[in-house]
C-alpha cells in the first residue's frame, strides 16, 4: 500500500499511482482535518496531486523527493483560496547547472 492511514495522518509512500486517488479522496472527505505526510513519497500521480489541490488538506510532512519538494509542496502549503493560479513556483536557473 502506498496510502496508509496512521493516527489521522495520511501517508503517501513510494510511487503513488492514480489508483490511490479514490481512496485518498474518500479518506479526506471522511475527515477533512486529516493531515498529509509526503516524506516518503517518491512520485505522486497527477490524479493524487489534483485531489490534494482541490481539497487542500494540511501538509504535516514535507516531501523529500526533489521534484515534489521544489514544485508540488509549495502549492500544497500555500493556503491561498481559489484565486488562480493555484500554484506558482519559480526557480533561478543557477540551480540547474547540470543542464
Amino acid at each position: 500500500m502506498t496510502l496508509r492511514l496512521d493516527d489521522d495522518t495520511l501517508h503517501l509512500e513510494g510511487d503513488c499511482g492514480s489508483e490511490e486517488a479514490e481512496p485518498l479522496l474518500s479518506l479526506l472527505l471522511e475527515r477533512p482535518s486529516r493531515g498529509i505526510a509526503l516524506g516518503r513519497a517518491r512520485t505522486l500521480h497527477t490524479a493524487l496531486v489534483q485531489v490534494l489541490l482541490a481539497l487542500r488538506p494540511r501538509l504535516v510532512e514535507a516531501p523529500t523527493d526533489p521534484f515534489l519538494r521544489q514544485w508540488i509542496a509549495p502549492v500544497l502549503e500555500d493556503g491561498s483560496s481559489n484565486g488562480a493560479p493555484e500554484l506558482i513556483q519559480s526557480a533561478p536557473p543557477a540551480r540547474h547547472e547540470g543542464l
Partner: peptide, 8 residues
Amino acid sequence: LLALELSP
C-alpha cells in the same frame, strides 16, 4: 524547469 503553475 524554471517555473510551474497548476490551476483548475
